[in-house]
Amino acid sequence: MTDKHVTPLASAHLAKEGDDAALGDTERHGFLPIETNWFDRLFISVVIWVALSLFWFRFIEPIGLSIWISNAIALALGAFIIRKG
Results as ranks from 00 to 15, higher is better:
residue 1 M to T: 10
residue 1 M to A: 13
residue 4 K to Y: 14
residue 4 K to G: 08
residue 5 H to V: 15
residue 5 H to Q: 11
residue 7 T to S: 09
residue 8 P to T: 08
residue 9 L to A: 11
residue 10 A to R: 15
residue 11 S to A: 13
residue 12 A to W: 06
residue 13 H to A: 11
residue 14 L to D: 06
residue 14 L to E: 06
residue 14 L to S: 10
residue 15 A to C: 12
residue 16 K to V: 10
residue 18 G to L: 09
residue 19 D to V: 06
residue 20 D to E: 09
residue 21 A to E: 07
residue 22 A to E: 13
residue 22 A to C: 10
residue 23 L to M: 08
residue 23 L to C: 06
residue 24 G to W: 00
residue 25 D to T: 03
residue 25 D to Y: 14
residue 26 T to F: 03
residue 27 E to R: 13
residue 27 E to N: 09
residue 28 R to N: 04
residue 28 R to Q: 07
residue 29 H to F: 05
residue 29 H to S: 09
residue 30 G to Q: 01
residue 32 L to N: 00
residue 32 L to H: 02
residue 32 L to G: 00
residue 35 E to F: 03
residue 35 E to T: 09
residue 36 T to E: 00
residue 36 T to R: 00
residue 37 N to L: 04
residue 37 N to R: 12
residue 38 W to H: 10
residue 39 F to A: 08
residue 40 D to E: 13
residue 40 D to P: 01
residue 42 L to T: 09
residue 42 L to W: 01
residue 44 I to G: 00
residue 44 I to S: 01
residue 46 V to G: 03
residue 47 V to L: 15
residue 49 W to D: 04
residue 50 V to K: 04
residue 51 A to H: 05
residue 52 L to A: 12
residue 52 L to V: 10
residue 53 S to T: 15
residue 54 L to Q: 12
residue 54 L to I: 14
residue 54 L to P: 00
residue 55 F to C: 06
residue 58 R to P: 00
residue 59 F to M: 12
residue 59 F to S: 07
residue 61 E to W: 01
residue 63 I to Q: 06
residue 66 S to R: 13
residue 66 S to Q: 07
residue 66 S to E: 15
residue 67 I to C: 02
residue 67 I to M: 14
residue 68 W to V: 10
residue 69 I to N: 09
residue 69 I to F: 14
residue 72 A to L: 15
residue 72 A to H: 05
residue 72 A to D: 10
residue 73 I to N: 02
residue 73 I to M: 12
residue 73 I to H: 05
residue 75 L to F: 15
residue 75 L to C: 10
residue 75 L to M: 12
residue 78 G to Y: 03
residue 79 A to G: 14
residue 79 A to P: 01
residue 80 F to P: 01
residue 80 F to C: 08
residue 81 I to M: 07
residue 82 I to S: 03
